[in-house]
Simulated assay, not measured.
Amino acid sequence: MIRILALATTLAATAASAEPQLRPGAETVRRYPAPEARQGVAVDARFVYAVANSTIAKYDKQTGAKVGEWKGDRARFPHINSCSLIAKELVCASSNFPAAPHWSAVEIYDPATMTHRRSVPLGPGTGSVTWVEWKDGAWYTAFANYDGKGGEAGRDHTATALIRYDAKWRRTGGWLFPASVLARMAPMSSSGGGFGPDGRLYVTGHDNAELYVLELPKDGAVLDHVATLPIEAEGQAIDWDEGQPWMLYGISRKGGEILAMKVPPAPVR
Rank of each mutant, 00 (worst) to 15 (best):
Y202G: 04
D110W: 07
N53Y: 13
H157Q: 11
V213S: 07
T204F: 00
G220H: 06
N81T: 09
R38F: 14
T28L: 06
R76E: 10
G151H: 05
H157V: 02
T158Y: 04
M247G: 08
G243W: 00
K168Q: 13
K58D: 01
L122E: 06
I163E: 10
W131Q: 04
P33T: 09
Y32P: 03
F97M: 13
P267H: 05
G150Q: 07
P245D: 08
L229K: 01
R171P: 01
T63D: 09
L214T: 03
Q244P: 05
A186Q: 14
T115D: 13
D241F: 09
P178N: 02
I4E: 15
T113S: 12
V43P: 00
T130H: 12
A16P: 03
T9I: 15
G192P: 07
A179M: 15
K218I: 05
A15D: 13
G235W: 08
I80L: 08
E133W: 00
M114I: 13
Y249I: 06
V48G: 02
V213Y: 00
A13H: 12
T204S: 13
V129N: 10
G256L: 07
A37S: 08
Y140F: 06
A99P: 07
N145F: 01
S94C: 14
A142Q: 04
A179G: 03
K61S: 07
V29F: 03
Q244K: 13
S94Y: 08
T160I: 10
V226A: 02
P124K: 05
A75C: 07
Y212W: 12
F47M: 13
Y59Q: 00
T160G: 15
G137C: 08
Y249H: 06
S180G: 12
W246N: 15
S189P: 01
P24F: 07
G127P: 00
A45E: 11
A153N: 05
L11I: 13
R46V: 12
R76M: 14
G255P: 06
G150M: 03
A186H: 00
